[in-house]
């Protein structure tokens, strides 16, 4: 469904992605793990057009996305929950959710999707008219995920959704990711919390300084010695 081929991304002189390749198949939960600065966020930004790769290809549903402008991506069925949530702080919860459906033109469809999102996140319904900047961290994460779901994506990219949350909330967020996947969406999950991520993923890629250094079934990587040592703290 999504294929990344030999991707190179630079920040000025810094070579952040050095020939990255990986693949996400329809229906999978794929996790991308790696230490701080490995290039995980850069990868997601390149996929959704927030960054221009220097070379390499991004193929989604057989279409080349490499040069597509960022604002065209969501219409193709790909949503991105960015690192740090990036909800629109000064707008209400409802306004944030409606922006998630910006490319949808049918009011009825938007209303229907909104109900679905509210079903998944009852907290957002309660807080519909609250200003997003005043939500708690966990609520903001739910808003960021709900906002992405408003575009009814076929694939959803999530960048460290568990960052800064209490253990209880982390579990809740991972349950939600599983249920999003069960609902039919493909998931590409970037995580620091490797243990949790591997426990719900089908396959995983391990990144180190701009490259994939290891890949395989999540269940196998969980028992891999080098992964255990570097990412699972065992």
């Amino acid at each position: 469904m999504l294929k990344i081929q030999d991707l190179h991304v630079y920040y000025g002189m810094i070579h952040a992605l050095k020939g990255l390749s990986f693949e996400v198949n329809e229906g999978e939960i794929i996790t991308l793990i790696g230490a701080n600065g490995a290039g995980k966020t850069t990868t997601l930004h390149a996929i959704t057009g927030l960054l221009r790769p220097k070379s390499g290809k991004i193929i989604f549903d057989g279409k080349d996305l490499t040069k597509a402008p960022a604002h065209k991506i969501v219409e193709m069925g790909m949503a991105h929950v960015p690192e740090g949530r990036r909800v629109f702080q000064s707008l209400t919860v409802l306004a944030n959710l409606k922006l998630g459906a910006y490319t949808k033109h049918s009011k009825a469809e938007v209303a229907e999707t909104l109900e679905m999102v509210y079903d998944r996140f009852p907290r957002l319904k309660e807080r519909a008219s609250q200003i997003a900047g005043t939500l708690s961290g966990g609520e903001q994460q739910m808003l960021a995920m709900g906002r992405a779901l408003m575009s009814k994506p076929r694939i959803i990219l999530m960048d460290e959704p568990s960052m800064g949350l209490s253990p209880l909330l982390v579990s809740e967020i991972f349950d939600i990711i599983k249920s999003i996947s069960a609902g039919g969406a493909t998931v590409l999950l970037v995580e620091q919390n490797a243990k949790k991520a591997l426990s719900i993923a089908d396959r995983a890629y391990v990144m180190e300084t701009g490259r994939i250094v290891l890949s395989g079934k999540a269940s196998e990587l969980m028992n891999d010695d080098s992964v255990k040592k570097a990412y699972l703290g065992e």
């Binding site: 959704t48 057009g49 927030l50 402008p69 960022a70 604002h71 065209k72 991506i73 969501v74 219409e75 949503a79 991105h80 960015p82 990036r86 909800v87 629109f88 702080q89 000064s90 707008l91 922006l99 998630g100 910006y102 490319t103 906002r147 575009s151």
Partner: peptide, 10 residues
């Protein structure tokens, strides 16, 4: 508020 996040909304 956030140009990048706005682009992600389409």
């Amino acid at each position: 508020e956030d140009r990048g996040a706005a682009q992600l909304m389409g």
